Computed example of a mutant assay.
Amino acid sequence: MDRVAIVGCGGSGKSTVARRLAAILDAPLTHLDAIYYDEGWRPMPQDEFAARQRELVVAPRWIIEGNYASTLPVRLAAADTVIFLDLSAAACLWGIIQRRLRHGGGQHAGGVYDRITWNFIRYVVGYRRTMRPRVRRLIREHGPHVDLIVVTSRRQANRLAAGRPPRAA
């Protein structure tokens, strides 16, 4: 694993898995939320965001975590490994609640952009129905060469983040 893209629903544990894997693999880590949003929670223009990712993926080693399906093909084309955290809506909502209790809202030093709105909750609840098929299609189309690791439980995510292959939940 030299070039790892980590994707999944909000609250699935992308940032946690990414931080732990970056430490184990001694690879540079980028949280896309930290690039996309400024300190005032204003998003970067889409063309600049895609250009920044194109700059990142030319490096020989990296871990990049974040969804952003519109620019996922940029990461998939360069990745050798994709970790797809495909947890249930309940598990993701619980992860969001835990993160909020630990850190509060806003932009965290670890790169997580945490702003809970009703639209975000609807997105999380509907992720498996709406976004998962899109992400899977993008992986098929732009990343047929990648080693795809699909994680469906917190237990599997914790094993992976500890540097052990995930087992079935």
Results as ranks from 00 to 15, higher is better:
Val125Thr: 09
Thr30Gly: 00
Ala34Asp: 05
Arg137Ala: 10
Ile63Gln: 14
Pro43Asp: 15
Arg75Asn: 13
Ala77Asp: 14
Leu138Pro: 11
Gly126Arg: 07
Asn158Phe: 01
Pro45Lys: 02
Arg99Trp: 02
Ile149Asp: 08
Ala34Lys: 04
Val17Gly: 00
Ala5Val: 04
Leu25Gln: 13
Val74Leu: 14
Glu65His: 04
Ile24Tyr: 05
Tyr127His: 05
Pro60Thr: 06
Ile97Lys: 13
Ile121Gly: 06
Ala109Thr: 08
Tyr123Pro: 00
Tyr36Gly: 12
Thr71Met: 00
Ala78Asp: 02
Asp2Tyr: 06
Ile83Gly: 00
Pro165Cys: 02
Ser12Lys: 01
Asp47Thr: 15
Phe49Val: 00
Arg132Asp: 07
Glu141Arg: 03
Ala27Arg: 00
Arg20Tyr: 10
Gly143Cys: 05
Ala168Gln: 08
Arg159Cys: 02
Arg154Glu: 12
Leu76Ser: 04
Arg54Ile: 03
Gly8Lys: 00
Arg164Thr: 15
Ala168Leu: 12
Ile64Pro: 13
Arg154Tyr: 09
Arg19Thr: 07
Asp33Ile: 04
Asp38Asn: 15
Tyr123Met: 15
Tyr37Thr: 08
His142Ala: 11
Leu101Lys: 14
Val17Asp: 01
Val58Arg: 14
Leu76His: 04
Ile149Asn: 11
Leu25Tyr: 10
Val17Cys: 09
Thr81Met: 11
Thr117Cys: 14
Ile35Glu: 14
Tyr36Cys: 13
Ile121Ser: 07
Ala50Arg: 11
Ile63Glu: 15
Ile6Ala: 04
Thr152Glu: 11
Asp86Lys: 04
Arg52Gln: 14
Phe120Ala: 09
Arg134Asp: 06
Gly40Pro: 01
Arg129Phe: 05
Lys14Pro: 05
Val58Trp: 09
